[in-house]
């Protein structure tokens, strides 16, 4: 049954996933074309000096990927939940012979796994190429600054799921404001930032909203309007 449920989620999200992963890969490709060009023009040592010790704004070669995780979270979330919200099709899903909580969390689980898979493809490629051009230290610096952005994508996905299930438009709007300010906290960091000490706090902020689906779906099932 769960596989059939996943089949439905896959039909909804596959094209959006494809395009967002393609966009991510295109950005990664562009970044490393630029890096390759710089290495050729300036030489490896000088370019690495630039990256490590140059004026920061001029040397964040990977700035473009900052909002890619956010875009992925939004794409997976919207493609998965908008078709369910239109005409309240979620009623069909909740009518399937499974416990409502299981159904809802399997959907959420699918989206989360898809998000992780897209992260793996795009950022796996990024780090593979990064290691070809830079020493481990640079990849580590990028990874630590990237972690909040990745978590931001997760947070936005869970918030979209929660907001979609809310039956009342006004409260959807209010949760939207909460979501905006929540997600904003993940994107205030710069491109070389030591985030290790705040990752636990950000991880809590990203994963707590995954429970919120239980609250809004309860309101939906009880017929709040």
């Amino acid at each position: 049954m769960i596989l059939h449920l996943f089949y439905k989620e896959w039909l909804k999200t596959r094209w959006f996933l494809f395009f967002v992963v393609l966009l991510g890969l295109a950005i990664v490709t562009y970044i490393f074309l630029d890096v390759d060009n710089n290495v050729r023009m300036k030489g490896s040592f000088n370019y690495l000096m630039n990256v490590f010790y140059g004026i920061p704004q001029a040397n964040y070669y990977h700035s473009l990927i900052k909002y890619v995780p956010l875009l992925m979270g939004v794409c997976v979330g919207l493609s998965q939940y908008v078709p369910e919200v239109i005409d309240k099709r979620i009623k069909l899903t909740l009518h399937l012979p499974m416990h409502n909580t299981v159904t809802l969390y399997m959907m959420l689980c699918f989206g989360f796994l898809m998000l992780l898979a897209s992260y793996a493809v795009v950022f796996g490629t990024f780090f593979y190429l990064n290691n070809l051009y830079f020493p481990f230290e640079e990849s580590w610096a990028v990874l630590t600054s990237l972690m909040p952005w990745l978590l931001g994508g997760v947070a936005v996905y869970f918030m979209i799921a929660m907001i979609s299930m809310e039956p009342n438009l006004f409260y959807q709007f209010l949760y939207g404001i909460v979501a905006f300010f929540l997600v904003k906290q993940f994107y205030i960091g710069m491109e070389h930032a030591d985030t290790r000490h705040i990752i636990p706090a950000l991880a809590i902020m990203a994963f707590v909203p995954c429970t919120a689906l239980l609250y809004t779906s309860y309101r939906f099932i009880k017929g709040e309007r």
Partner: peptide
């Protein structure tokens, strides 16, 4: 309104 999954 005979709502079904229109994306299928």
């Amino acid at each position: 309104g005979h709502i079904q999954y229109s994306f299928m």
